[in-house]
């Protein structure tokens, strides 16, 4: 595939921007968590785009192309942990408030 790295990064940026939008605008906790997953995936895509960029023959030896997939694996791991804790919190929140809307939550008086 001879797609320039810029286009991969542009796709990652678009996904990340949509994730930020959802995170800031939506009030349903589950959709907010989905938006976070979207942002993590955008980060993954940019890691892999960078890895692919550094592995191209003209740039060989300048960067470490294997760091990209390694970081992507760690990001997936962190995403799994984050989803587990986040969803456990959602369940605890639902038992407490009978709703998952973020509007009515001020228990921590932030």
């Amino acid at each position: 595939m001879s797609v320039p790295t810029d286009h991969l990064l542009a796709l990652a940026a678009a996904l990340f921007a949509l994730g930020v939008l959802g995170f800031l605008v939506r009030k349903n906790v589950i959709i907010v968590l989905c938006s976070i997953e979207l942002m993590l995936n955008a980060a993954n895509l940019s890691f892999l785009a960078a890895s692919r960029h550094w592995s191209q023959s003209t740039l060989a030896g300048q960067g470490d192309p294997s760091a990209g997939p390694i970081f992507a694996i760690f990001v997936i791991l962190v995403a799994a942990a984050e989803a587990a804790v986040g969803l456990a919190l959602v369940i605890a929140l639902y038992r407490l408030k009978q709703s998952v809307a973020l509007d009515g939550i001020a228990e921590l008086r932030g």
Partner: peptide, 26 residues
Amino acid sequence: LAGFPFLAATQLLVYAGAIMVLFLFV
């Protein structure tokens, strides 16, 4: 397409298979 078959498999197995099922469960 970008040349990361293992990451693609992980994406499907871990993300689509496990994390999303967790979301659906909840």
